[in-house]
Each structure stands twice: as structure tokens, then as C-alpha cells.
């Protein structure tokens, strides 16, 4: 599909900044319009990244769930963990991936709550794995403001 979605959004934002924003005299309207432009640029970037973000995160969470099943087989793990640990994506629509991600993250919170105060070695190792996952996810989800200079 051409032009690319991200190109269209970026170009629309540029048009907004160059052809419209400078001619708006009301301060509130001008700043609001500029923010709309910024959000369009961010949207262009996110359209390209969102599916990858969710697939990566979903895979990482399922991997932690599988580790939990392998290393803590006798523990009572939160509901749903064993079912979702081996699941695969049924659709790659962003909305579908996001729904799966929300369910997995909810289960991850339950699992983390269950193991973080446990003192067994497998629980400590799993806790460490969960923190590695969370840390990586925090980095992935940071959205940098676009550089509008130049």
C-alpha cells in the first residue's frame, strides 16, 4: 500500500507545521495544533513499531511462563499461566496482539506477586527473569519526542 502509512502521517504533520501553524494567531489554537502535529509524527513511528513491540513482549512473557512451569512444577501457579505459556498468536492485527498482551501482562503480574517473596532458588531465579523482562519492556515502550529542528 503506497504511499506508506508512516510517510502519509509524517507528511501531513509537516504540512500542518509549515502551512498552517505559523498562520494561527490564537496562542491556544496554535499550540494545540502543534501538539496535534507532534502526535501525528509519533503515530507514524508507532505504526511501524507496535506489532513488533507486542509480538516481542508476548514471546518474552510466554518464555517466562514456560520457565515457571519447568522450574516450579509443584507450585500452584496463577490461573491461565500453563494454558498461555505454549500459545501462539492467532492474528497479527495490532488490536489482537494488544489484547493478548494485556492478558499476558495481567498473568505476569499475578505470577510475579506469587514468586517475588518466595525464598526457593527456582523462585529467586524466576523473579530475576521477570525483572529482566520488565526492564527490557520499559526500555521498549519509551517513546522519544520527535526532533522538530532542521
Amino acid at each position: 500500500m503506497k504511499p506508506d502509512l508512516e510517510v502519509v502521517l509524517q507528511t501531513l504533520a509537516t504540512t500542518l507545521f509549515t502551512d498552517f501553524v505559523p498562520h494561527v494567531s490564537d496562542d491556544y489554537q496554535m499550540k494545540t495544533m502543534a501538539m496535534v502535529g507532534v502526535l501525528m509524527i509519533v503515530s507514524a513511528d508507532q505504526i511501524d513499531q507496535q506489532a513488533d513491540l507486542y509480538v516481542t513482549d508476548n514471546d518474552a512473557i510466554r518464555s517466562v511462563f514456560r520457565t515457571a512451569l519447568e522450574t516450579m512444577p509443584h507450585s500452584k501457579l496463577p490461573q491461565g499461566v500453563s494454558e498461555t505459556a505454549f500459545a501462539e498468536e492467532e492474528s497479527y492485527r495490532v488490536s489482537a496482539l494488544r489484547n493478548v498482551n494485556n492478558r499476558l501482562r495481567q498473568q505476569l503480574i499475578a505470577l510475579h506477586t506469587a514468586v517475588e517473596t518466595e525464598t526457593s532458588d527456582p523462585a529467586k531465579a524466576l523473579n530475576k527473569s521477570i525483572w529482566q523482562l520488565i526492564s527490557a519492556d520499559v526500555e521498549r515502550r519509551i517513546i522519544e519526542l520527535p526532533n522538530l529542528e532542521g
Binding site: 494545540t32 502526535l39 509519533v42 508507532q46 530475576k128 520499559v138 519509551i142
Partner: peptide
Amino acid sequence: PILASAGWLTIGRHNKVLLGLLRADGGAL
């Protein structure tokens, strides 16, 4: 749109600040 901006741009950065503090306090590995 300032609300959309707050939801998108700020949550990610605040998560990072929180993670740094949790690590410093021994609450994150």
C-alpha cells in the same frame, strides 16, 4: 491532545524513572 500526549509520551519516561528508583531501593533486580 495534551491528554493523549500525557498517556503516550509521559508514561514510558515515568516508568523508566520508577525502575531506576526501585533498583536503587533494592526493589528491582
